[in-house]
Each structure stands twice: as structure tokens, then as C-alpha cells.
């Protein structure tokens, strides 16, 4: 299982607790994480389902490369952090 953890600052707007999901890519992990929390999806992804401009995702400590398709691979027992990028102020 892959563990997905969201930035604590998001919790001020919408509850988004850590979840464990079965996934092989970041896209699959987020789709699973948002399956029961559709509104949270709009806080992380834009209208085209790409990562918002001032958000950032780390997979096992490495920043993802594909911000649009979220195709970066995730290993079994991987850990995903969805965070704010400081570029957003």
C-alpha cells in the first residue's frame, strides 16, 4: 500500500487525513485518495486535473517530474507527500 499525506495547511479548509491506497503512479494514488473526498481534489488539482501551480508532491523524498499527468511511479509501501510550494507565498 502507498501512504498519501496532505499538508496540514490544507486541513484548515477541508479535512484531508492521510490515507493508504493501492497505486502504481501518483495519479492512481490521488484518484484513490480523492475517491471519497471529491471536494479535496479541487484544492490540489486544477480544472485539467494537473497539479496546481503552487503545489508540490514528493514520492519517497523525490519531487515528482510530471505535474500534468502525474505519471511518476510509486513503489509498493511508498510514501507520497502533497505539500505547498513556497513559490505560492
Amino acid at each position: 500500500m502507498v501512504r498519501v499525506t496532505f499538508t496540514p495547511t490544507l486541513q484548515r479548509h477541508i479535512a484531508c487525513p492521510p490515507v493508504e491506497v493501492a497505486a502504481a503512479t501518483v495519479r492512481e494514488a490521488l484518484d484513490a485518495a480523492f475517491a471519497g473526498n471529491a471536494r479535496a481534489r479541487t484544492y490540489v488539482l486544477d480544472d485539467q486535473a494537473a497539479l496546481r501551480k503552487h503545489m508540490i508532491i514528493f514520492v519517497d523524498g523525490k519531487r515528482i517530474v510530471d505535474r500534468e499527468r502525474l505519471s511518476d511511479r510509486v513503489l509498493e509501501n511508498g510514501e507520497i507527500y502533497v505539500l505547498q510550494a513556497l513559490s505560492g507565498g
Partner: peptide
């Protein structure tokens, strides 16, 4: 919200707000 994008909320004047849908572009 900057990082978290644009959102729309509504209230019927009693101070209670609910988030409604945000206008979103199609694919």
C-alpha cells in the same frame, strides 16, 4: 486560496457558509 485555487462560498445571511461549486473549465 493561492496554493489551493479559487473557491466559491454562499450563505443565507445567518453567518453559516457552505462551499458551493466553483466554475470549472471542461477538459
Amino acid at each position: 486560496h493561492g496554493h489551493f485555487g479559487v473557491k466559491l462560498h454562499r450563505s443565507n445571511g445567518d453567518g453559516v457558509w457552505e462551499e458551493c461549486a466553483t466554475p470549472a473549465y471542461p477538459e
